[in-house]
Simulated scan of single mutants.
Amino acid sequence: MPTTARKIASFPLAVKMVMIDLDGTLIDTVPDLAAAANRMLADLDRPAWGIEHYRAWIGNGVPRFVKRALTGEMQAEPDAALNERGLALFRQHYGEAVSNLSRPYPGVVEALEQLTDQGYALACITNKAEVFTLPLLKNLELHKYFKLVLSGDSLPKQKPDPLPLQHACRHFGIDAAHGVLVGDSSNDVHAARAAGMPVICVTYGYNHGHDIRQSLPDAVVDSLMEIPQYLKLYA
């Protein structure tokens, strides 16, 4: 079993609900995001970036992602008019090809099947806008596994705020201690900690190039197939 860090509960965790992040946890979405961003840049007569840049820039939502593509920096602010045009172009291009190149990570489908069979309620909690989230999940035939999908614009706040996690707990009628968040970034760890919930992170995915272990999740796994060994169904 992989090394654990800063446990807030003993393993196996007694939970009813498993919440799973989308980009970088369930699905490798970088290829489509990068393609859409480079089409946006071409429309603006700006040079394209390599996919390794986009892997580091994912997180914090589409508006910040577009700003990073326009400036080449994590927190820089482009010209307002350029940013407005770029954001509109990106949304158009990404919406037209949200799942052309994106694929679930190895073991994801098998893990979702196993967790469903074992009786856990599954929720997908993402900062991606619903207009992209739902087609992506449906096109890749993952939507059927989730009893709840919360996108970045479903609620007034998104991760790392705990509101989406708290909303999911209310939806399923459980305490935070009886849910677990599975993600890939420090945003997921911060959201879970604020909600008083355990969190397990994957070693792959998008965390701005930083080792997720530095954020001290309760456990770190190399595949979603490892998740069930950390859990037992809360009765």
Rank of each mutant, 00 (worst) to 15 (best):
P31C: 00
V30C: 03
A34M: 04
K7A: 10
A36Q: 04
D28W: 12
A9N: 09
I8W: 09
A36F: 01
V15E: 14
L13G: 08
D28S: 11
F11A: 14
K7R: 10
P31I: 01
I27M: 14
M17P: 12
S10N: 14
V15P: 14
T25R: 15
D21H: 05
D28P: 10
L26P: 03
I8S: 11
D21A: 07
T25M: 15
K16C: 15
A36D: 07
G24Q: 06
N38S: 13
V30Q: 07
V15F: 15
V18N: 04
G24W: 02
T29P: 05
K16A: 14
R39L: 13
D28I: 09
A37Y: 05
V30D: 07
A9T: 10
I20D: 03
V18T: 08
A14D: 06
S10I: 12
T25P: 09
R39M: 13
P31Y: 10
L33D: 03
L33S: 04
D23V: 08
T29I: 06
V30W: 06
L22W: 08
T25F: 13
D21S: 02
V18E: 01
I27D: 13
L33Y: 03
R39A: 14
T29A: 04
M17W: 12
K16I: 12
A9E: 10
R39V: 03
A34I: 00
D21V: 02
I8A: 01
A37K: 01
L33M: 02
K7C: 06
I27K: 13
I20V: 11
N38Q: 15
I20K: 03
T25L: 14
D23N: 02
F11R: 09
S10P: 12
G24H: 01
M40W: 03
S10D: 15
I27W: 12
M40V: 02
K7N: 06
T29R: 01
M40R: 06
P31D: 07
D28M: 11
A14R: 08
T29Q: 08
A34W: 00
M17G: 13
D28E: 15
K7L: 14
K16P: 15
G24I: 04
D32P: 01
L22V: 08
V18F: 08
A37V: 05
I20R: 09
L33T: 04
L26D: 09
K7T: 09
D23F: 05
L33E: 05
M40C: 09
D23S: 08
